[in-house]
Every structure is written in C-alpha cells, then in structure tokens.
Design a protein around this nucleic acid. Sequence first.
DNA 1: ATTGGCAGTCGGCATGTATGAGTGCTAAGA
DNA 2: TCTTAGCACTCATACATGCCGACTGCCAAT
Lengths: 341, 341
Amino acid sequence: MVSERGLEVLRVIVQDYVASREPVGSRSIVERHAFGVSAATIRNDMALLEDEELIAAPHTSSGRVPTDKGYRVFVDQLADLRPLTPAQRQAIEAFLGASVDLDDVLARTVRLLSQLTHQVALVQYPTLGTSRVRHVELVPLGGTRVMSVLIADNGRVDQRILDLANPVDDAFLADVRARVNAAIVGDGLADAAKTLSTFADVFAPERRQLVALIATSLAEQVLAGRQDRLLMAGTANLARTEDDFTGSIYPVLEAIEEQVTLLKLFSEMDAERGGVAARIGRENAGFGLAETSVVTSGYSSGGGSVARLGVLGPTRMDYPNNMAAVRAVARYLSRLLGEDD
Amino acid sequence: MVSERGLEVLRVIVQDYVASREPVGSRSIVERHAFGVSAATIRNDMALLEDEELIAAPHTSSGRVPTDKGYRVFVDQLADLRPLTPAQRQAIEAFLGASVDLDDVLARTVRLLSQLTHQVALVQYPTLGTSRVRHVELVPLGGTRVMSVLIADNGRVDQRILDLANPVDDAFLADVRARVNAAIVGDGLADAAKTLSTFADVFAPERRQLVALIATSLAEQVLAGRQDRLLMAGTANLARTEDDFTGSIYPVLEAIEEQVTLLKLFSEMDAERGGVAARIGRENAGFGLAETSVVTSGYSSGGGSVARLGVLGPTRMDYPNNMAAVRAVARYLSRLLGEDD
DNA sequence: ATTGGCAGTCGGCATGTATGAGTGCTAAGA
DNA sequence: TCTTAGCACTCATACATGCCGACTGCCAAT
C-alpha cells in the first residue's frame, strides 16, 4: 500500500514533470521540496508507486513519469480547486461583457478559454433543449423557395431553406406564419413539435399538403437544434506542445476536426457527476485521442438547457489551472446567459 | 539570359522537388526526364538559373531547390490549368449538391476544398455587398431587449441583440417592423442604410429616440454584413507537411487563427487580376506567413457580390493541382449561389 | 554549344567513447 | 520497522571521428 507520503511524492512528480517535461528523479525531489527525508527513502516510495502503476520509468535508470493512472489519482485527489486570480476574473468579465448576441458570446468564450489555459478550447452550442419558441418567420425567397427562421428565447436563431413543390402565394404564407406563431410561440420545443404535427389539419384540403410540408420541416428544425455544432480555438497550442505527442500531432489535429467524434465524447462526459470532469489519456483512446486529456464542465443557457465547454491538450497538462479556468468560465457563461431570460 | 530549355529545367526542378522534398541534382534530372542532353549541360543551365536567383543550393554541392522567385516564375508560366478529373468534378457535385442553406453550403465547400488539395482551406463569407434586403424582423426578448434579424436575398441571415434604454411595447414594435419593411425591403443595402438614417423623423417626438436607436443599429447591421467571417478546414494538413517549415508550425497556426490578418490578405489579393491568384512565400511575410503560399479565387454570390476562397499551405505545394481545384470550386460555388436568385 | 572527366566540398550516417543522472540493492543505524 | 549511506550498474545524451555518396564547378576536348 502506498503511504500518505507516497501520495505526496506522486503529487510533486506530477507537478515537476508537468512543469519541466523531464522525468523526475529522487534526488531532484528532495532538492526542490522539503520532504525531510533522504533521496533513498523517496526511492523506496517511488518503487511502491511503480508497483501500483502510478508512475513509470521511460527507461532503466531514468527519472519517473506519471502514468495515465497516476494523473487520474492526482486529479481525483485534487479536492479543492484554487480560485482564479483577480486578474483572470477580470479578464473574463472584460472579455465576455461586451457581447451582442449568442454567436458572439460563444465565440468570445472559446477564445478566452484558450487564452486562459493555453490549450485547445471547445464550446458546444447550447441545445435548444428546454427553451421556448420566441418567434417563427417564413420568408418567401421567390419561386418555390421559402426560408424559415426559428428564434428561441435563449437567443438562438435557426434558419433553413425549404424547397416546396409549388410556387407560394405571399399572402397565404403570411397567414400560415401568423397561425404558426399563434399556435406555438411560448411553448417548449417538444410541445411545439407535437402541435406542428397536426397543424395542417385545419387548412383547406387543397392547401393541406403545402402546409404539412412547412410544418414538418419546422418541427424537424425545432427538434434538431444546433447541438451538433462546436466552436474551437487555440489549435496552435497543440503545435506548441507537440513534443508531448509521439510522432506527429497530425492524428490529433485530424481527430479534433471530426466534430462528430468530439460531440460524442462530450455526451459521454455528461454522465460523470460533479462540476468539472476530466478524461485522461487512454480513457479517450476510442476517439483517436489516446495521448490527450479533456477537461470539461457543463453550462446552462437560459431555460435550464445545457451544453458543455472545455479544453483539450496533451496528457501532460496543468490540471489544477485548467480545471479552475474551465469551471470559472462555465459559471460565468451560465450567469451571463441566464440573465438574458 | 536563361534559355528556353532553362525554363524547362526550372519546371522539372519544381515538379521533382515538390514531389520528393529533396534537392534535385543534374544527374537525377537527366535520368528522370528525357532532355536529350547530358548532366553537364543541365549543370550549366542550372548555374544560369542560380544567377537569376530562381533556384538555390541549400549548401555547397547539393542539389537545387526553387526559390520563392523560382516558384513565382513557375506559376506565372503556368498558362493553362489542366481541368479536374471527372472523378473530382463528380465529388464536387455530390458534396455541394445536397446543401440546405448558405451556412451549410459554405461549410461543405471549405471541407471539400481541403480534401481536394490536402491543404488548409479558407472560405470567406460573402459580403452583403450588392445584395438586397429581403426581410427585417424585430423580436421582443422581454424587458428592454430586442433582437433584430436581417435577411438578405442571397440567403444570409444576420442577427443582433439591442438593449434599449426603455421597455418596449410589443404592438409598437410590430408597427415599427412593418414600416421598416415597407421602407427598405427590396432596396440594395447601401440605399437601405441611407433610408434608415432619416427613418425616425416621421414618428412622434416621444417615440423618436427609441426608433432612432433601432434604425441606427439596423443601419449598422446592414452595412457591417458578415464579411469579417472566415471558415477554415484541414488545419491538420499543416501538421502533415510540418517538415516544410523551419522550426515549428506553431507560428503558422497562430497566424491563421488571426482571421483579421487573413481577411486583410484576401482583400489585397482582390487587386490581382485574373481568375486564380497566388501569393508565394515571402510575399506574405507581412502576415507572419513567410513560408506559406496562398492560392485564392474570387467567387460571386447572388447579386454580384463577391468574396474569396482558397487554400493555404507550405511554399512547396502542388500549384497546378491546387490552382485547378480552387478555380473549379469557385466556379461551381458561384453557379450554385447564382441559382438561388 | 555540348560533353566527359576529375577534383573538391559537404551533409548524413555509423561508430566509438566519455559523461552524468538515476536506479536497485544491501547492510548498517535509529 | 522505517530510514539512510554507499556502491555497482544501466542507459540516454552529447560529442568526436571517419567514411561514403551525391553534387557541383571547372577545364579541355569535340
């Protein structure tokens, strides 16, 4: 069993290794940290840690490096995150305060997060989830084309182009628009979709098909939302840390361009309890990200709907700092979006 | 003066170097290409090319490598681009055919372009430019907030949130909306902005301030457009070619995340005549991109408004292929967007 | 103008060696 | 039982050396 001091040793190994990228040996530990014991004692502790597979030696007779499992223990031990510095807090407020719309807020958020952490930052668009319909607009585009614009009360705007079989009559379209709005404005999105499914029935039979087409498309739009979108910033940071990846960073860059993959990863992390979740190294192997760690937190937007945001970087990252930053930004963003209601 | 054959030699040097990333020597030239002269003759030609600074030797007694100037001559000589293969044409059609709205079209375009060229692809959002106002919507968001949505006839939707000093009355807002639409729908954007500047005058004095606020914001929105946005795909390709960059690719990744810079570069390229424009190596030094080349073409969207799209990669890139792909995609996109009108 | 030949240059690679950091182990001390 | 000092051993890293091969530049001959 690994002793109390053993855990402390693990901690400084993680710290020093993250700071220097060099395997850390027993001698440098006693030099840099006041353990009050000799290097030989540290060595004994390290042997135990190695038995537990919390650290490993890259080659015989070199210092030790944390394993994925070691990082995991380190992170789980990390009970209390130190809050951000006042300067950082202020940066958040200054950066996000001046936003004009949802797109803008999220774009700023993702850049802010990458600057705070020096990692790749990711922000998922909020799902429409439990928000409500604020307004529906149908705009004739000429010919048989109609653009439908759906506005939700969390500020999201969704557009879509419909190609109807027959030319549309503007006045009729205005009528449909008025009725749709009367029918579903203020409803939750799930309700709205249900209402729309029977919406065409009240129209004259010869119109019914046309209206049904519009209603069906709107219903899809209502449900689909945009939860499939992801903003990203700071990919350059990956190159800065490229020595942390075996071979090239190419596969990593490739994996994070595959947004579908990342969204799946995000959704898996939803399951984990607690504010900030971390997935470390090979825990992400299934996503082509075996050498990266992902730190995320959920955030809420308006009506309790939820999405995630976080950072991605090499396994050898500064977890305490990144977790604190992710948590702070998620909280601030939730507050900012909540105020919109 | 460099002879006709000299230019031919330059051409094969560029080709072979691009293909192999190895300095090419006189011997390998005569081996791989049927020049009908000996290596010594080629050497003489190469000496001339070196005098003209079209090629250079990385170190004494190694093969030669094209200089930026050499690439430039090579590209300018490239009169006729060979068209894409039928398979590539088909890929374009299949990829872009199934798009539903402008966002979707552009997102697909940028991914397509990066796949065709194996480079970083860039697509600039079309400026609202000469397009017309299709519809304006004002949506009360509760409290003092109003969202204005501007729809242009090229399918673009622009949203913005206004925070008015005083609470707004829904009925009044609907009135304003109706009048705004009556006033500017169908107008070109420049005209619309002008109309809006005097729009508030017809309202009762106590309302005037409020209306002026809305009108001003709308006018801004009309003019601002979204020409400041840029889509990007295939950054992983930079990592694939990282050996082509001295040191790290970090500065390059950093530069291309600075969209403002790229947009400025794009606007400079607008000046260059002809369909496809290339900027090579140090020609981009001012943008932190001294080791990259950029190949772009303008494309038109709807009402003749214009934007650019293209690819960015190491100076050592396959210019003929990339220029052909950029040209083909730009043409296809123009056609696709033109049809929407 | 072109060619063959030849000396000279230099990068890259493989080899050999010295260096130093770090470990594991053992035996003695607290 | 935990801790410590000492010692032999391992191995990555850095550096020096020497060889090989690819190319060029030049010159004299065609």
